[in-house]
């Protein structure tokens, strides 16, 4: 009886499960977009010579990286609503939590990527009369982006895994569905296994892509 695996339960509910999976990927993608967009100004502020920009950015990054995702989720979903600050749907609260947490990591990745661009590039750009903003936009950023892509993809994988937590605030993702069906049909092993395998497959593809990107980038001839 231990290894009786009832596949019909899974096939019966496959479309609901896949819908849930899609929701997980969507919320992770939105979260990553927020993280990637927020991380850039954060990284720039963190490198600024002005303490007025640097200190808040450092605080933000410290908070984003120091507070566990699950607490951010609870905070945005329950705590903010209690204080009447704002009230979000599970999807938005989830995407925002992922985005805020991810922004700290993305900021660090951009920062590392910016410092990886040789200082001669800045000098070369200045010597042909490019302004600071032009230097950043046309010379530094395009080069930094190349180094930032592989670790950035790792952040996406991290957020994808983090997105699985969102069933705790009632996001109707795959685990939420799995739990409902599991209770109704009393087939928890089948459903949790199916859900796990599905989400692992997605994260694996993303993780492998990140790995490939990492190897390709490190092989690239740069001097």
């Amino acid at each position: 009886m231990v290894f009786a695996f009832d596949t019909t339960v899974i096939s019966d509910h496959s479309s609901e499960l896949l819908d849930g999976l899609l929701l997980t990927v969507e919320v992770a993608a939105l979260g990553f977009a927020i993280a990637a967009l927020l991380g850039l100004p954060l990284a720039l502020a963190g490198r600024s010579q002005s303490p007025l920009l640097r200190v808040p950015a450092t605080l933000w990054v410290g908070l984003a990286r120091g507070v566990p995702l699950l607490i951010v989720i609870f905070w945005l979903y329950y705590a903010a609503a209690q204080e009447g600050l704002f009230s979000l749907t599970a999807f938005l609260a989830g995407a925002l939590s992922l985005g805020l947490t991810g922004s700290g990591y993305m900021s660090e990745i951009y920062r590392t990527a910016f410092s990886a661009v040789p200082s001669g590039q800045r000098e070369g750009a200045a010597a042909i009369g490019l302004s600071r903003w032009q230097t950043f936009r046309l010379v530094i950023f395009p080069q930094a982006l190349r180094t930032a892509i592989p670790p950035g993809m790792n952040v996406f994988v991290m957020l994808l895994k983090g997105a699985t937590l969102l069933s705790v605030i009632g996001l109707a993702d795959m685990f939420y569905t799995a739990k409902l069906v599991a209770v109704n049909e009393f087939k928890p092993f089948e459903l949790y296994t199916a859900a796990a395998v599905l989400v692992i497959a997605v994260t694996l593809v993303a993780a492998l892509a990140a790995g490939v990107a990492e190897r390709r980038m490190s092989k690239g001839v740069r001097r």
Binding site: K161, T164, F175, V199
Partner: peptide
């Protein structure tokens, strides 16, 4: 290594705790 890197902690916990445990009784 690759597979483990792709597994979310929460997923593993749910599977262990609710899936596998239920199956094994």
């Amino acid at each position: 290594i690759q597979v483990l890197r792709g597994i979310a902690l929460y997923v593993l916990l749910l599977w262990l705790f609710f899936g596998l445990a239920a199956q094994g009784g």
